[in-house]
């Protein structure tokens, strides 16, 4: 995992590197961008929601960088901020015709791979049937985080995490069999 110094949140750009500003924040996003995209994708209902949520996560990370003291791992901290930004996001009122389906996000990478795109869409719609907190827990588990890390991010006792995850998995199997 890339180690990034977060103690100077407003450090000036040291210059362009491969077309990207070399700031602590941009390095943080580069190291954990995929994680953020994954979380936002699973919570979004359309591309517009995804972009709003991602923007929200970036702003909250930027605001919180100065207060990060390294008590937890960096990716744990980023996960907490990303999930908190998404669970507290409430969709703006938009006309149905203004919404772009979420599949457009994965179409570029999956062009020609309709099977993978369909699998992702199915997984998304299954997980979408969970409530916001359950979604956060299953996302953390699917990303192979330990129960201790999940308990830290969710601020729950470890035993509660274990029992709730068991119920969430049973729910998902039930949804998928319906």
């Amino acid at each position: 995992m890339a180690q990034i110094n977060l103690s100077v949140p407003n450090c000036e750009s040291a210059g362009e590197t491969h077309g990207r500003a070399d700031t602590a924040f941009s390095r943080l996003i580069e190291a954990h961008g995929t994680l953020i995209n994954r979380v936002c994708y699973m919570y979004a209902g359309c591309v517009e929601d995804f972009e709003d949520m991602r923007q929200e996560v970036y702003v909250n990370l930027w605001r919180g960088m100065g207060s990060f003291r390294g008590e937890s791992g960096e990716s744990t901290w980023v996960y907490r901020v990303a999930l908190n930004s998404c669970v507290s996001y409430f969709r703006k009122n938009r006309h149905q015709s203004e919404l772009t389906p979420l599949s457009a996000l994965t179409d570029v990478a999956d062009s020609g791979n309709d099977e993978r795109a369909a699998m992702l869409s199915e997984m998304h719609s299954l997980i979408n049937q969970l409530d916001r907190v359950e979604k956060a827990m299953i996302l953390l588990w699917l990303d192979e985080n330990t129960y201790d890390v999940i308990a830290e991010i969710m601020n729950m006792p470890r035993n509660t995490v274990a029992s709730r995850l068991r119920r969430i998995k049973e729910k998902l199997v039930k949804f998928s069999n319906e």
Partner: peptide
């Protein structure tokens, strides 16, 4: 879990247009 791992590959290209958003946030 396998499909979740496949999601990483599908979402990788979204990082290419991040720079403008990062600058605006900073």
């Amino acid at each position: 879990k396998k499909r979740f791992d496949a999601l990483n590959t599908s979402l990788e290209s979204l990082d290419d247009d991040n720079i403008r958003l990062i600058r605006q946030v900073e």
